[in-house]
Design a binder for these strands. Sequence first.
RNA 1: GCGCCCGUAGCUCAGCUGGAUAGAGCGUUGGCCUCCGAAGCCAAAGGUCGCAAGUUCGACUCUUGCCGGGCGCACCA
Length: 671
Amino acid sequence: MILPLQQAVRAALRDTLTTLYGADAVPAALVVDIPPSRALGDLALPCAFELARTLRKAPRAIAQEIVAALPPIDGVRRVEAVAGGYINVFLDRAAFLRARLGRPAVHPLDATRPKTIVEHTAINPNKAAHIGHLRNAALGDTVGRLLRFLGTPVEIQNYIDDTGVQVADVVVGFERIDGRSVDAVRALAAAPRFDYLCWDLYARVTDWYEADKSRLVTRAETLHAIEHGGNRTAEMAAVIADAIVRCHLRTMARLHIDYDLLSWEGDILRLQFWDTAFDILERNGTVYLQTEGKLKGCWVMEIDEDVDLTGGSGAAVRVDPLDQEAAPEQREKVIVRSDGTVTYVGKDIANQFWKFGLLGKDFAYRAFGTRLTGETLWATTSTGGRSDHPPFGRAGTVINVIDTRQAYLQKLLKQALATMGHRREAEHSIHFSYEMVALSHKTARELGYAAAPDGRPFVEVSGRKGLGVKADDLIDRLIAKAREEVSRRNPDLPTAAAQEVADAIAVAALRYFMVKFSRTKVIVFDIDEALSFEGESGPYLQYAAVRAGNIFGKLREREQLDEAAIAGLLDALSDDALHDGEDGDALWDLVLTCGRLDEAVDIAVRTLEPAVLAKYGFALAQSFNGFYHRFPILSEERRDVRLWRAAAASYFRQQMIQALDLVGATVPGRM
RNA sequence: GCGCCCGUAGCUCAGCUGGAUAGAGCGUUGGCCUCCGAAGCCAAAGGUCGCAAGUUCGACUCUUGCCGGGCGCACCA
């Protein structure tokens, strides 16, 4: 926890600057940086450079004035102005560690804050999950964990598109190509790997359409039947969707990902959420019937190109009506097709309205399964339902984790809210977008896919073609490889224990890999790279924590000291070990790095960039590994030095366990 | 054509609201296991930060324009 300390320094600085130069001269944002080395200090304040302009004085002189006027700050040892004009702050090292060791960095839940809904995963329930879906789920789950870390109430939703084209296609496959009955499909669905079976079937359906385009009529018919309900086709679709969703949940559970609520698109239709939303939109004029042109007979929404909705935080502002004449062609998006069916956008608008509690209606809820925590996993339903469900929806902020290719649609959602006068909700409608996962040519070849020679550096994952690495296959390979390593390094480890360790390593490797890149970067997935347990990887982080853990195992044996006892001894201990100098600086550097976890989380949440946390975790592990090699703990003769080093290692372990938990990974006992 | 994203070391990427010598992983080369576990550590080599202007005391970071690449712009989602 270093944020409160930063705030205290910032507040003191602000007061001092106000006193010295007047409120007007104080910069709006006071930057707190990190000096390049501990010898230079722990926090750096570059404000003198900024003030130099308005005050027309040398930065160095200003810095000196400020330092002289700065009051004592709790937790700060001294403040000094250095050469160029930086003001460097030195923290009270021993007090810092004493105050934090053994105290969790997690903020307690603040139930008074508005809820944030995070929707992620949302895989079409018609085939197995693949690596692209894993990026979505890993990012979404981590965002949820980061928000919870900061004490924000969070509700994780998984949207199930059970009435869409993709499910319809698999139904077409079973009904028209394979000639199977509902009961036959039900039997298949009960067997393991039904999601794999559908994966292949879906690819066959694509080929089937491809061979004769007129067959696409069956898709439309099937989709209609599913939307209409009350027939065998719809029943089959329901059987498929239910079974596939359960497959997806099992896959995600392997990666420690789960949900508060599954929201089913079918319920949005059956409960006529769309009709309600439509009434609102039509009355308001946001959606209107197009009477001419190629969209004749469709209910459409104007696409307002000038609404700035890209940043996620930008205010939605309608353009001056006068300027609209300048726009050569007003574009429209179909919300209700001429045949009366609702597009995805329409359903999603209704869903988004519901998430904010703006619809005036609610779902009924049923128990769908059991969560990883042992609690009930809830799902929406249209009829009946239970009354003992927790409250869902009514969020203050909605974060939709959806890949960047759907930015356009998400923009429309926001626009609909803004146009309806729900400015606040529009601003709190966040499209958490991320780039796609593609395959390296090498990996595509390994999967037996001969890449078309289009000269592109990667091969796009394609569910329709059945091209992609299935999530479960990848997890299996990771576990097998980890298992091999674990057994090689720990031949004495019993099978069950070795398996458990291998699982933990595989999860950490995969989840770390999925969040270590910025959202905006295309991941060109290479199986060998993802399988790596070295360098900047999840297992590297785990390994550092395991090493630290081993030290405490030995300390317990030799000195009957556990981590709590070590923390308890610090108060009475001389803090020479932390004093300025090469060794003290190195020890302190580790402690300070450990302390920055909350800062990393804060930045990750502010920028909606989980990679920040991943990078922090890596830097933290590096910091410990470097320390580990330079400074022995068990064999250190001076008791006070030994204990301070042990305390730092303990603090490191505490923070690393927390950091790994934020990406959904655990620390095994050995590895 | 319009919109969004990317362009930093051989490869893959960090670089937060402009600030102290542009960092890391992989790969390459060379060291380190009688010493808390080598899934590790240390060191070396490797960069006109796509290009060009502009703003600034100061630009990888902000603005504009270009160049290169990706993705969108369906009565699919």
